[in-house]
């Protein structure tokens, strides 16, 4: 029954990636070098926005499947 309430572990993992990278990776993205005329840090944030969309979408698909499975398992109990 407890599992019924849980998110899939992969959901947790992929959703924590942007939070961890943004919180703890500052010294790696704190960079003002110009790439195609734009600061590396600005590129990084644009990229993180897009990566977050992709990761959250992946989590969305996983959870859609997960909810279905948990529901059918719950129905059998």
């Amino acid at each position: 029954m407890k599992n019924y309430k849980r998110y899939h572990p992969v959901t947790w993992l992929i959703l924590l990636i942007p939070i961890a990278v943004l919180s703890f990776g500052i010294k790696y993205y704190n960079n003002n070098r110009l790439i195609f005329g734009i600061s590396a840090m600005v590129w990084f944030f644009i990229l993180m926005d897009i990566i977050t969309v992709i990761l959250t979408y992946a989590a969305y698909l996983i959870e859609k499947k997960n909810i279905k499975e948990l529901k059918s398992k719950h129905g059998q109990e």
């Binding site: 998110y7 959901t11 943004l22 977050t52 990761l55 959250t56 969305y60």
Partner: peptide, 10 residues
């Protein structure tokens, strides 16, 4: 604001 959306999802 980027970090907040995974929190929203969860």
């Amino acid at each position: 604001v980027i970090m907040e959306y995974p929190i929203l999802f969860l």
